[in-house]
Design a protein around this nucleic acid. Structure first.
Length: 629
RNA sequence: GCCCCCGUAGCUCAGGGGAUAGAGCAUCGGUUUCCUAAACCGAGGGUCGCAGGUUCGAAUCCUGCCGGGGGCACCA
């Protein structure tokens, strides 16, 4: 069996599921199911106020009330409402007149400056600085940084990572693993009940290969001392043998491959010896992938692989036949979709079941066991047809209340835009990649340290342990962030230098912003606690202070948008903007040397809230921070 | 053959009805008696693949074409 997230060729797919009903093209959803519109959500606040102003004035006020966007140019204010132009036609009035009537009815006096009407009918909002300051003060006193917890928690099963065991994890598994983990963290933070389930490929042909390898090439000594490594060796050995036999005879039977297939078939048929060996191998295989998950800081609530569902498959097929959803055809059992569309097999003519059967059994099990509102599949784009068929079949089968979503992502490509390979043509092993990232981070630390010394700067002298810790955190953060910061639906061109770059929109930049921030507190001896328990109301007089404050208060709407569309890269984009705002602030607004102690306290509040927001944002991406680097 | 996706700056990518299309890298120029220079500031660089259409308004929606990729019973 192929892993679900094998490295692959490309392409993105549009959202398959609509979580909100957009009445107008391009409008932002007014609300996300289960997410309360309260707290510091600036966008929602304006949308609500606008909707209230439109109520009684126009039909479908919430549709037009939702047409609020951040401005692209700060000269136009902070946010803009675009409702007047489309409403002009509906009401048969001039857009500027409509805009004026809307503004007259808005109840936002204590929140925004008097709105400006500009251009063809844009209504521009600029928040009052004193209002922003009070919101910031409230956010600082809040563990959740002003982000509301959901009013209606949903139960969501997230199916991600799902590698084949019995062979080393490779770079192709990375995207599913870290996107799925990030979505888990995000939805949990917003208050949803998330159940993570690693749907392992633990029952397929790769086990046949292991069985064949074990029977022919095992090294007893190696198995005793390091079974995991021996498993990997056997797998590679067998795969090489199969590959060697493929060149001459593409179509002709490959004796080794055929032998492996037979081992697999025997396993499925319950052959005593093979089942015993399967039970022997599994813990070793699990230990191997578990090591990587630990390093990546990824945990699963359940690891129910394909083998778990094996006993249920015959009943699944029978049930689908009984209900007339599946038909027998050419000796197989299939489910038909459209007249011109090929069917999906749920039982092959040799009696074997397919991954469609397993996935159907899995849906039934999950729905009956956990009663989820939604099941997310974080899987390679190329399986979109499979999921379309799977979801269609499941709904016909009666599972039409659960929302089934294929959270698809693009492929990992090499510099030649072909699927990423090592020089030898194999997949890049995940662990090697992580080691390389950490090694590069360590080299970067060395280089930077020498440059700092050459400039006569103070250098934080890290002990060996802390240095390793920094390298691990920075290196893994770089790898994760490089992937997560890209729209998941795009193909991902793998590039060492870009992935491990420490400039620009990278985890390192964010981690560094955090470190500089913490340095201020360390240097001054100021404690952070008072800024969290009894925060002062900050003064926002410098443009850099105001811009930073505004960005900090956009955290809530960012997380909401990321959750609606299952797009972690929105968080990355936000953090990048936040870190840039902080940099400008840092450059222009001395903190410890501010003119007054009141201003110092105000700026320390901004610093601490920035640090906490960066730390929280990175945490939602599965990335850690360090105190010094 | 049928279906799906993509084409935006030299490169890698955001933006997917709203104001003059953005960022990073790369290139060029500048910044350190100052809280970490793994930083900051500035400059150049685009016919948003092409052509029609819808709209007050299109990179964004529709149609066609060109180029690239993927998927399409007995692998998963």
């Amino acid at each position: 069996m192929l892993p679900r997230s094998c490295p692959a060729l490309p392409r993105r797919e549009r959202r398959q599921q609509t979580l909100h009903s957009a009445a107008l093209p391009g409008m932002m959803p007014l609300s996300f199911p289960g997410v309360q519109r309260t707290g510091m959500n600036l966008l929602s606040l304006l949308q609500e106020k606008l909707t209230a102003a439109l109520t009684g004035l126009v039909p479908h006020p919430e549709t037009y009330g939702a047409l609020v966007r951040p401005t692209q140019d700060e000269r136009h204010g902070d946010y803009q409402a675009n409702a007047a132009m489309p409403l002009a036609k509906v009401l048969g009035q001039k857009p500027l007149d409509v805009a004026r009537r809307i503004v007259e009815r808005l109840a936002l006096d204590d929140v925004v400056e008097p709105p400006a009407i500009a251009g063809p009918g844009f209504i521009n909002f600029r928040f009052r600085s004193d209002w922003l300051a009070r919101q910031l003060q409230a956010a600082a006193a809040d563990d959740r940084l002003g982000v509301s917890s959901t009013a209606r928690p949903r139960t969501v099963v997230i199916d991600f990572s799902s590698p084949n065991v019995a062979k080393p994890m490779h770079v192709g598994h990375l995207r599913s693993t870290i996107i799925g983990d990030s979505l888990t963290r995000l939805l949990r933070f917003l208050g949803h009940r998330v159940i993570t389930d690693n749907h392992l490929g633990d029952w397929g042909t790769q086990f046949g290969m292991l069985l064949y390898g074990y029977k022919h090439y095992r090294n007893e000594e190696a198995l005793r001392t390091d079974p995991v490594r021996e498993m990997a060796r056997l797998y590679v050995k067998v795969r090489q043998e199969i590959a060697a036999g493929e060149d001459e005879a593409e179509e002709a039977a490959n004796p080794v491959a055929e032998a492996c297939r037979q081992e697999t078939a025997k396993l499925h048929a319950g052959d005593e010896e093979n089942v015993r060996l399967w039970r022997l191998f599994m813990p070793w295989c699990l230990a191997d992938i578990e090591r990587i998950y630990r390093r990546l800081d990824v945990r699963f609530d359940h690891t129910l692989g394909e083998s778990f569902y094996h006993p249920m498959l015959a009943d699944v097929v029978q049930s689908l036949l009984d209900r007339g959803i599946a038909q027998k055809s050419e000796g197989a059992v299939v489910v038909w979709f459209g007249a011109n569309e090929p069917p999906a097999l749920i039982r092959k003519k040799d009696g074997a079941f397919t991954y469609m059967t397993t996935d159907l059994a899995t849906i039934r099990y999950r729905v009956e066991t956990w009663k989820p509102d939604a099941i997310l599949y974080v899987v390679d784009f190329r399986q979109s047809l499979h999921f379309k068929n799977l979801f269609d079949t499941a709904r016909r089968w009666g599972y039409d209340q659960v929302e089934l979503v294929h959270v698809s992502f693009g492929s990992v490509l090499g510099p030649d835009r072909r699927p990423i390979k090592t020089r030898e043509g194999g997949a890049i092993e995940l662990e090697q990649l992580l080691d390389e990232a950490v090694a590069r981070a360590e080299q970067q630390y060395e280089r930077t340290r020498e440059e700092r010394l050459a400039r006569g700067e103070e250098v934080p002298e890290l002990g060996a342990d802390e240095r390793r810790q920094v390298a691990e955190t920075v290196g893994l953060g770089a790898v994760k962030y490089a992937d997560l910061s890209q729209n998941r639906e795009s193909d991902y061109v793998f590039n060492w230098d870009k992935m491990l770059a420490m400039d620009g929109n990278t985890a390192t930049y964010m981690q560094y912003a955090y470190v500089r921030n913490r340095g201020i507190f360390r240097k001054s001896g100021a404690a952070v606690e008072p800024f969290r328990t009894e925060p002062p109301e900050p003064t926002l007089t410098h443009p850099a202070e105001r811009a930073l404050a505004l960005q900090l208060l956009r955290f809530s709407e960012t997380l909401q948008a990321a959750a609606i569309e299952y797009r972690p890269h929105l968080i990355c984009g936000y953090l990048w903007e936040l870190a840039k705002s902080y940099s400008v602030f840092f450059q222009n607004c001395p903190v410890l040397r501010a003119e007054t102690s009141v201003l110092t306290r105000s700026r320390l509040l901004l610093c601490d809230l920035t640090a906490r927001t960066i730390q929280r944002g990175l945490d939602l991406l599965g990335i850690r921070t360090v105190e010094r680097m």
